[in-house]
């Protein structure tokens, strides 16, 4: 809503906001998905994290949602806020209207209410894409570690800021249609290990992992991932870069 048009409460009286939360417990056969409204008095600087905790503490202890760090670092609290994937702990209620709808991230396994099992999917993706340094050289524990160019280290660090919150996958139109799509998070990880000088894998090896329509060539560049990423990762450029490199592998043939 345009902020200037929003009705302002009188100074001194807190705004009363409605959190419209999608409730469902898949473990309970009697549970059906439904929306439930909770009224909360807004406090100054209130985030959705604070609001949800207040609801759980004072109104409904059965409300399920995930939080760990409350500072946008752990990635647990990603949910659909007014339909868009975002981190609840980094969302101020003052930036939203009087009614805020909250729903669990789609695509991932639902644990209950707003809590989804992103970890399970992340683990599977990690194994599928082999997102760790591959290096068969024997390790000499007494030798000094090989130095890394500062520019490489910076580039790796930039992409390693990914917190695996799942927002990019929930914001991806391709992933909604095709569950096997690796999503921006998978492609970002491949881009990260491609930079790493310790990783001995070639573009041909990376092609084996993401060189198909479930990988980089399945991406339709809708950029939902790039626009919802709470860490502002350069996903658009990373995916384009990977696409160019792996397209060359495809052209080279064997």
């Amino acid at each position: 809503m345009i902020s200037i048009l929003r009705r302002r409460p009188k100074p001194g009286t807190p705004r009363r906001i409605t959190l419209r939360i999608l409730r469902h417990n898949p473990a309970d056969p009697a549970s059906t998905p439904h929306q439930q409204d909770f009224l909360v008095d807004e406090a100054e600087g209130m985030t959705l994290f604070i609001a949800l905790n207040e609801i759980r503490a004072t109104q409904d202890p059965s409300l399920q949602f995930d939080f760990v760090c409350r500072a946008g670092i752990c990635g647990s609290c990603a949910m659909l806020i007014n339909g868009r994937p975002s981190l609840a702990c980094r969302t101020l209620t003052q930036d939203l209207g009087d009614v805020i709808t909250l729903a669990p991230l789609p695509f991932f396994e639902l644990i209950g209410d707003l809590s989804v099992n992103t970890g399970k999917w992340m683990r599977g993706t990690s194994e599928r894409l082999q997102t760790w340094v591959h290096n068969d050289a024997p390790v000499d524990l007494d030798a000094l570690e090989a130095p890394m160019a500062p520019a490489d280290a910076e580039a790796i660090y930039e992409l390693d800021r990914c917190i695996e919150c799942g927002c990019c996958v929930a914001g991806c139109g391709t992933a909604q249609m095709r569950e096997r799509f690796v999503g921006a998070i998978g492609l970002n990880k491949i881009a990260r290990f491609r930079i790493d000088p310790r990783d001995t894998r070639s573009d041909e090896d990376f092609y084996e992992l993401v060189g198909d329509d479930d990988g980089v060539f399945g991406c339709m560049s809708l950029l939902g991932c790039h626009d919802v990423c709470p860490k502002q990762l350069p996903l658009q450029t990373q995916i384009a870069f990977l696409r160019r490199k792996l397209a060359i592998v495809g052209l080279r043939g064997d």
């Binding site: 396994e109 599977g124 194994e127 082999q130 569950e179 084996e208």
Partner: peptide
């Protein structure tokens, strides 16, 4: 991975490729 077996929520298995 045995973690990746399809479940009631419809999440499908993502088998690791044989490299």
């Amino acid at each position: 991975s045995d973690l990746m077996v399809s479940d009631a929520a419809g999440q499908i298995a993502l088998p690791a490729p044989t490299l």
